[in-house]
Amino acid sequence: MSLCKWLDYYPHHVLKHLNLTLRQIAGFIMIVLLVIALVFFLVTLVVGLFNAGASLDSALHGGFVGTFGVIGKRLSDQGIGFEDTMQNLEVKLEAMLGSALVLVLGLSKEMEDVFLSLLKEVETVI
């Protein structure tokens, strides 16, 4: 089989096994190009809102940034499964880690208290 026949056959073979048509591929490429164009348009719009003296634009921009900042913070807290501050999460995780270490090491209650107090001392030094 000549090289020209392979080049003619192979793309159709791949498309057939992937259950794709040229129309589907062209549509996907158009959607990707539209999303990229939308991102560039939005970036241009945001940069344009920083003009000096455009008080309404600045107020709208500040409102959107503030609103989406609060929404993002709440969604990120829910995403980690903890709806408190990150410092409280760190304290809770340290307590869980200390309990897990005591359990793995098989320490008695007295040794557990000594071990946990030692961890707290190390934590204050660091």
Score class of each variant (00 low, 15 high):
V14I: 13
L97C: 02
W6M: 12
G69F: 01
Y9F: 12
L107G: 02
F115Q: 00
L118H: 11
A37F: 09
Y9P: 12
V47E: 09
L93H: 05
T67G: 08
N19S: 03
I71T: 07
M96T: 13
V125R: 15
N19Y: 03
V39C: 04
V46S: 04
I126Y: 14
L97V: 05
L38I: 02
V46A: 14
F82Q: 00
E83C: 07
V70N: 00
I29A: 14
G62Q: 09
Q24K: 07
H17E: 11
V102N: 01
E90D: 15
G48D: 04
G72E: 00
E110M: 08
L101P: 07
C4M: 13
L105I: 04
A95L: 12
V102F: 03
G79D: 08
D57C: 14
V91W: 08
L45V: 11
V122D: 13
M30V: 13
V43I: 06
G72L: 01
V104E: 15
G81N: 03
Q24H: 06
K109G: 13
Q24F: 00
Q24R: 08
T44C: 08
W6A: 15
L38H: 10
M1C: 11
L103G: 02
H17P: 03
L38D: 14
E123G: 06
S117P: 01
L3M: 05
A59T: 06
F28L: 15
F82L: 00
L89D: 05
K92C: 08
D77N: 12
M111W: 15
V14T: 06
H17S: 14
L107Q: 03
K120S: 13
E94C: 11
T44P: 01
R23G: 14
V114M: 09
D113W: 03
V122Q: 10
E94I: 07
E83Y: 08
L49Q: 03
M111V: 12
L33I: 06
F28N: 14
G66E: 05
A59K: 05
L45P: 03
V125A: 15
D113R: 07
F50W: 06
P11K: 05
L116E: 02
L33H: 13
E110C: 15
M86I: 05
D57F: 09
H12E: 15
L33K: 12
D113P: 05
R74A: 15
L119F: 06
G63H: 01
A26P: 01
L7W: 10
M1K: 08
V46W: 09
L3N: 08
I80R: 15
